[in-house]
């Protein structure tokens, strides 16, 4: 039919942003951290990520086929979830751990709650917490070239000195994707430029975390301590890639500010007074659970009703 004569109902103007494009951008943004992880920890790290991505996609496909739902594998969200799970693994875990994590993330956290857009917490973070609680030993053993050592964050908590420059470039121990701050920042800035995420959540999250550490960390304005806290653990990965997850962060701008401040405070509490050195994953899933509440109290006033109660 002639395009000019084609009468359709509204909306007439459509955005070109699709889930697929967004997920592709996020995957691209994770590339520097992934490549650095493989470079740092060897080919076995690549195997871990292949397994986690593979099983995330497979679980999604099998579940949606079995329950006769629309198969949403091609939108790439399962790939990103799988990749994030892989990046959150220590480089020495046996391959069945990322496999179990991916199945849990996709099946229990995502699909059982209604599939893409319906999950109440970030699937990758939920899977990480699941594995961390279940296999505490394996999930916190960090080994590089056969030498196992504490992560800088653990060392910092024990009062030892750490090398902040190495933490920034990534030549430290930790999970595959969290070690290199510079690689994560490159990805985060790419997302900012492409407009996939806005600066609000990551910047306010990191800022409120810093303020909290300054107030209660016991080291005051010591730049060395603050920068070590900022570069250590999963904070950067969490702030740029997990906290900004579309499904599990508040939709209102004011809500996002509250959410980010909350995450900063929670991370600070877990890091300073928790039993383990890191706390980003627990802070994130706890924050995710509070999102519906935050959205409820930050509903914007409709146009024309601003002055009324």
């Amino acid at each position: 039919m002639n395009g000019l004569l084609n009468v359709s109902s509204s909306p007439h103007a459509r955005s070109h942003v699709t889930t697929k494009n967004l997920m592709l951008d996020v995957a691209l943004a994770l590339l520097p951290a992934t490549v650095f992880g493989v470079y740092r920890f060897g080919l076995y790290a690549l195997c871990i990520m292949v397994v986690s991505v593979g099983f995330a996609v497979l679980t999604e496909y099998v579940f949606e086929t079995c329950t006769k739902r629309k198969v949403t594998v091609s939108d790439g969200s399962a790939i990103v979830t799988g990749l994030l799970i892989g990046l959150n693994m220590p480089s020495t875990v046996p391959l069945w751990i990322p496999m179990l994590g991916s199945i849990f993330a996709i099946l229990v956290v995502k699909q059982l709650f209604g599939g893409i857009g319906q999950n109440f917490m970030n699937p990758a973070m939920a899977a990480r917490c699941f594995l961390l609680i279940s296999f505490a030993g394996r999930m916190t053993t960090f080994d590089v070239d056969g030498v196992s050592s504490a992560t800088p964050l653990t060392a910092l908590k024990a009062g030892e000195t750490v090398d902040v420059a190495a933490m920034f470039t990534g030549f430290i121990t930790g999970t595959i994707g969290e070690v290199s701050v510079i690689a994560i920042l490159a990805g985060g800035i790419y997302l900012l430029i492409k407009g996939v995420i806005r600066w609000t959540i990551p910047v306010i999250y990191l800022g409120s975390f810093l303020v909290f550490i300054m107030l209660f960390g016991g080291h005051g304005l010591d730049m060395y301590y603050l920068s070590a806290q900022l570069c250590g653990g999963g904070l950067m990965l969490g702030a740029w890639f997990m906290a900004t997850d579309y499904v599990t962060c508040p939709i209102t701008e004011r809500g996002r500010v509250i959410y980010a401040v909350l995450l900063g405070i929670l991370t600070g509490i877990f890091r300073l007074w928790g039993s383990s050195a890191g706390g980003v994953s627990y802070a994130l899933i706890l924050g995710n659970l509070l999102v519906p509440l935050i959205e409820k109290v930050t509903v914007p006033k409709a146009f024309g009703l601003e002055g009324k109660a």
Partner: peptide, 10 residues
């Protein structure tokens, strides 16, 4: 419901 593909999001 007729035409339901089980995906409530879409």
């Amino acid at each position: 419901v007729e035409g339901c593909d089980g995906n409530c999001a879409s």
